[in-house]
C-alpha cells in the first residue's frame, strides 16, 4: 500500500463544483480510470481519498491537492496522472502525482492572484484605492462564530492575516497578488478582504476573479 498525492488545476466551469461534489466527482473518475485504489472497509466500502484545503465556490485553483491510497506499490505515478486526465472533464486537469511528503497540517499560507474589474472606475483609480486600503493598520470584519451553543458575530482584524505582494494595472483590470494565512490554524478567504474593501469605499461596483496559485509551508516552500 502506498499513499500518493495528486496535484491538479480546477478552472472554468469546474469552479462551481462544491467541495462535497468534488469528492464524488473524483471517486467516479478514479473508477473510470481503473486505478488500483484502496477501498475503506466496513459495510459500505468506498474509495479512500482526502483533500488538503477546501476551495471556495467560484474560485479557480492551480494548487488543488488530493491524497489517495494505492494497493499496488509499484504502480507508476505518471500513469495515475494520465489515466485520471483521460477520465476527468476538461476543466479539471492533473499536472503531477507524487509520493506524499508532508501532512496537510503543514500548509500555512496560500498565494492568490486576483483580477479586479471596476466597471465604471478606471483601473488606475481602483489600484490606488486598493493600495491605500491595504495600508490600513487594521481591517475589521464581522465573522460569525459559535460560543458554546450560541451563535454570535465577532469582530476580527484580518489585516495581519494577509500581505499584498503586488498590485498593478493590466489593461482595464487591476491584478493583485496576495499572500494569506491558510490551513487549519488560521485561514483567510480573499473575498472577505474584498468585501471589506467595498465597504470602506461606499459599496463601489466591483467584480473579481480569484485564483489560488499556490499553497505554502512555514518555510515558504510549496506544499508537497
Amino acid at each position: 500500500m502506498i499513499d500518493i498525492r495528486v496535484f491538479y488545476h480546477k478552472t472554468g466551469r469546474a469552479r462551481y463544483i462544491s467541495h462535497l461534489d468534488m469528492m464524488r466527482c473524483m471517486q467516479r473518475a478514479i473508477v473510470r480510470a481503473k486505478l488500483p485504489v484502496w477501498y475503506t472497509e466496513g459495510f459500505n466500502p468506498h474509495i479512500y481519498l482526502t483533500f488538503a484545503l477546501p476551495l471556495s465556490l467560484g474560485y479557480e485553483s492551480k494548487s488543488e491537492v488530493m491524497d489517495l491510497r494505492l494497493i499496488d506499490d509499484a504502480f507508476p505515478l505518471s500513469e495515475v496522472t494520465s489515466r485520471l486526465n483521460d477520465a476527468l472533464p476538461p476543466d479539471i486537469r492533473i499536472h503531477t502525482t507524487a509520493k506524499i511528503q508532508n501532512k496537510p497540517q503543514a500548509i500555512t499560507h496560500a498565494i492568490y492572484t486576483i483580477q479586479l474589474f471596476g466597471n465604471t472606475q478606471s483601473a488606475e483609480v481602483l489600484r490606488d484605492r486598493f493600495c491605500a486600503f491595504m495600508r490600513s493598520t487594521q481591517i475589521l470584519v464581522e465573522k460569525r462564530a459559535k460560543q458554546g451553543r450560541r451563535k454570535i458575530t465577532k469582530q476580527i482584524d484580518i489585516r495581519p492575516m494577509c500581505e499584498l505582494l503586488s498590485c498593478e494595472v493590466s489593461g482595464d483590470v487591476v491584478l493583485l497578488t496576495l499572500k494569506t494565512q491558510a490551513g487549519i490554524q488560521s485561514n483567510l478567504n480573499p473575498s472577505l478582504l474584498l468585501e471589506a474593501f467595498i465597504q470602506t469605499n461606499e459599496g463601489l461596483p466591483l467584480r473579481w476573479h480569484i485564483c489560488r496559485d499556490a499553497l505554502l509551508m512555514e518555510d515558504g516552500s510549496p506544499f508537497c
Binding site: 472554468g12 466551469r13 463544483i17 473518475a29 476527468l88 476573479h209
Partner: peptide, 21 residues
Amino acid sequence: QQLDPILMRVQKPARYTGGEL
C-alpha cells in the same frame, strides 16, 4: 465570465454551468 457575478448570487450554481463529464 458573463455569468460569474450572478452565479455567485444564486443557489446551486452548478445547475447552470454544464461542463460535466
